[in-house]
């Protein structure tokens, strides 16, 4: 077990290691058996929200010792060393850490009578919330205990780990549900609105438009720039990133950019233009779930711009679009990063990869590399 990385000596984890922490409380959640990471994150956050005292109120907490071994995790009172909780390690679903908070998720099966036939078995999760300045270290030690126990299990059962590489990471990407921030965004009525713009006959609206990019869930044009002092800007109702659904009742959804441009140009002689828009931020976030670097990301990048996308790949499922420039990877700006470095970051990125993008043409317009063609 010497190979298993982590803060502890793997041999020590066989006997058990103790960490001091403050116990804040426990709560229960109902969960499916192997939820995707995004669901686990929401569960952990929910547990913390339920337990943490509101800002300004004092947080009740008890000094405890966390006993971590490859067999079990126990919560002992610091003074009497009495076991408050004792969970076999295989019932620990996952450990989450956020800042100085640790959330331990242990499973309990729901009684059979609560299960409807044909439905997924649901589990009751007992969520214990702790505070410690060493939260990350403790979480890493528990993660290490998971790995040591798992290696031991594979050895005992003569399972070749190389055959399990993909399974042990949790979900296979093929099973992953589609993540698309757009879908949630577009389905909210408050993001959709009708904008009425008054203008002089012969005057242009003063908007520049670009394609939303292949892979976008709503194939329609995006406002890339607003002409200073133009009717669109003066209305104060439009911003860069907004999707144009229709103009004066003519749908733009699914039409080529050039067709959309000529439809908007034809409005020149109108004095009132009604735009149906979905308000969107100029930057979109894609979340790619990649359990292992063995999985292809499923897109090609040239000079920071996504130039092709593999149909059905994890990138497409995560909301990556062709023609977009990568702005950030996992919170780190890459706008001034050389191509080779971006490739290196992407090649090594695993687990949940958060990528912020914007249409490359919008980026060029915003950075003054290209002059907008106002319509």
């Amino acid at each position: 077990f010497k190979e298993v990385p982590g803060p502890c000596d793997p041999e020590d984890l066989l006997d058990g290691v103790i960490f001091g922490a403050k116990y804040l409380g426990s709560t229960q959640l109902v969960s499916e058996r192997n939820p995707p990471t995004s669901v686990r994150m929401a569960q952990a956050q929910e547990a913390v929200d339920r337990i943490k005292a509101p800002e300004g109120e004092s947080q009740p907490m008890t000094e405890v010792d966390l006993f971590v071994s490859t067999q079990r995790i126990k919560v002992l009172t610091a003074d009497t060393q009495e076991a408050m909780m004792d969970h076999p390690l295989q019932t620990i679903s996952y450990i989450a850490d956020i800042g100085s908070i640790i959330v331990l998720m242990a499973r309990r099966k729901l009684p059979r009578r609560t299960e409807a036939s044909g439905e997924k078995r649901l589990y009751k999760m007992i969520c214990h919330v702790f505070h410690s300045a060493d939260a990350q270290l403790i979480a890493q030690a528990i993660g290490q205990a998971f790995s040591v126990a798992y290696q031991h299990f594979l050895q005992v059962n003569s399972i070749d780990p190389s055959q399990l590489r993909l399974r042990q990471q949790g979900h296979s990407p093929e099973d992953e549900e589609l993540y698309n921030g757009d879908l949630a965004h577009f389905s909210k009525q408050e993001n959709c609105k009708e904008v009425c713009i008054q203008k002089q006959k012969g005057e242009i609206l003063g908007i520049a438009i670009v394609e939303s990019g292949w892979g976008s869930i709503l194939p329609t044009v995006v406002i890339a720039n607003l002409m200073h002092g133009g009717p669109a800007e003066k209305s104060g109702e439009l911003s860069i990133g907004d999707r144009l659904m229709s103009v004066n009742g003519t749908s733009l959804v699914g039409l080529p950019l050039s067709t959309c441009q000529s439809i908007i140009r034809d409005l020149k002689h109108q004095t009132e233009v009604t735009l149906s828009i979905v308000h969107c931020p100029p930057v979109t976030t894609a979340i790619i779930r990649r359990p292992d670097s063995k999985y292809q990301l499923g897109f090609c990048v040239e000079n920071g711009i996504i130039c092709s996308l593999m149909r059905g790949g994890i990138a497409e499922k995560g909301g990556i679009r062709v023609g977009h420039r990568i702005i950030e990877i996992n919170g780190q700006s890459v706008v001034a990063t050389p191509h080779e470095k971006i490739i290196q970051i992407l090649t090594q990125a695993v687990s949940e990869v958060h990528i912020k993008t914007m249409p490359a043409s919008t980026y060029r317009l915003l950075t003054g590399q290209e002059q907008p063609i106002f319509l």
Binding site: R33, Q90, A96, D97, F146, Q168
Partner: peptide, 21 residues
């Protein structure tokens, strides 16, 4: 600060009787 999740790989192998009742 970032929320980090470490999933127990043994979760997949847990037998129903092992879940705490």
């Amino acid at each position: 600060s970032a929320l980090t999740i470490t999933v127990n790989p043994m979760e997949k192998y847990e037998q129903p009787h092992q879940a705490e009742e």
